[in-house]
Design a protein around this nucleic acid. Structure first.
Lengths: 246, 246
DNA sequence: TCGGGGATGCGTATGCCATACGCTTAATGC
DNA sequence: GCATTAAGCGTATGGCATACGCATCCCCGA
């Protein structure tokens, strides 16, 4: 009886998966879960996750702080809903696309865009995904590898590899470009030049000299992301060839 | 005059980089920065980053909460010191080791160990590294590639690739195994089986069936980590061969 | 047409949190 | 021994999440 399990699920999950019963009685709601979540996402986008408090969210919605708790059980719940809504639908491709590399690249680039648009997502992923939004992305990535001879465990490993890369790259780029107004654009590069003396950190000093941290030298950030992704997918290609020969 | 720049640095950085002047006068300190940081690390290790508050830290040290502020300027400062201290020294290898793959593997495995021992590190990296501890690791990874024909920018890209993978893998493993006591070990797998119906998430459902999320089936977590790392380094190898031929 | 059940909106209160300010205390060097 | 200087910390403030309970208002059945 799988439905029995459903009854034991936390209420958040039942709502997320559309299992909550409609109520239809009582006072007409001025707020809705969707409005609350959308406002929370907008607030986090604009002012960062640290600025997201129930009080400030209520202020933005023009209601009292405690009103929010009629729609979300607590701040953790709210963040789960935010996560589910902010990632949006994954790119579409069939169950076993012929071009795994193109599909996975598209997946990674779009996910990168999501993380760049909503940088707070990276900060609040502390537990494995349980919402339909994130699981849809996971499913899409696994489907991108559907045409390859890899075993399921290997496919999962590859997807995690790409996911971690996308997350890390987005986080790095965000943290580098999000120095608010206190410092100029290349402040980090200048700071490193001052701190990383060649005697102590020879390789780092050479890398800095080469302009690795200089945002204006070299390629655009998105190109850097693509280059790293290509390295990564080269490795996946090796694994796929190996699996095909076995 | 580079020393002028030093005077403009935030005080935290001067302390981190050993540029703070000794004082020598006044009441003998009962606390020390080292003791405060060590206690904070222990607290975060044992009870998680969320449980780290100035009050609880003071309690653990047997002092009043406000005493801590004589050694750190605030909680952010404290966390920077924690980051610097917790990562420890990176593995040793020369400036241009012959075996880049072995060196980088060792680097990644040891860093993975650090993240597993101090899971909170992953949660508080929001800005680029400015402390000697983290920069030493960065330098070591760049040195691991010292014998390859890659350009500096490409080396940096590879290091970031590996770094992101290590971070992500550690975070995933921690979040999967850290379900405190409320649920059994394979609870997440069971939950997914319930939620991810094959009609909606075909690939995910098949992956779950294949036991991807089952902690007892298949390889040990560390082996999974090594397998993913090998995929990744295969890709790096491709890039290195390409650079050698050019 | 009109109660009454039921959910909504929210005022109040509690307890934790970081931390600014300034007083007390004690060690150093003259 | 006394001035100087920094350490330790008591108190207070303002923000935070959120438990609890009441007032409000709407749908539904009579």
């Amino acid at each position: 009886m799988p439905d029995d399990i459903g009854n034991e699920l936390p209420h958040v999950l039942n709502v997320l998966w559309g299992r909550a019963k409609p109520k239809g009685r009582g006072r007409t709601p001025a707020l809705s879960l969707e409005r609350v979540v959308a406002a929370a996402i907008a607030l986090a986008d604009e002012e960062g996750l640290a600025a997201l408090s129930m009080a400030r969210l209520a202020e933005r919605l023009g209601c009292a702080p405690m009103s929010l708790y009629r729609h979300v059980a607590g701040k953790d719940d709210l963040q789960l809903f935010m996560l589910n809504a902010a990632c949006g639908p994954p790119p579409e491709f069939g169950t076993a696309p012929a071009d795994w590399r193109g599909s996975l690249t598209r997946w990674a680039v779009e996910l990168f865009g999501v993380y760049r648009r909503h940088p707070w997502i990276v900060q609040l992923v502390n537990s494995p995904p349980v919402d339909p939004g994130q699981l849809a992305w996971l499913d899409a990535a696994l489907r991108a590898l559907g045409g390859t001879p890899l075993a399921w465990r290997a496919r999962f490993s590859v997807v995690m590899l790409v996911l971690h890369y996308v997350r890390g790259a987005a986080q790095l780029l965000t943290s580098l470009s999000a120095e608010p107004e206190e410092r100029a654009d290349g402040a980090y590069a200048a700071l490193l030049t001052e701190l990383a003396h060649p005697g102590r950190f020879p390789a780092l000093a050479r890398a800095i000299e080469a302009g690795v941290f200089d945002p204006h030298a070299g390629a655009a950030p998105d190109d850097d992301f693509r280059a790293g992704l290509d390295h990564l997918l080269d490795g996946v290609g090796v694994a796929i060839e190996r699996a095909a020969q076995a």
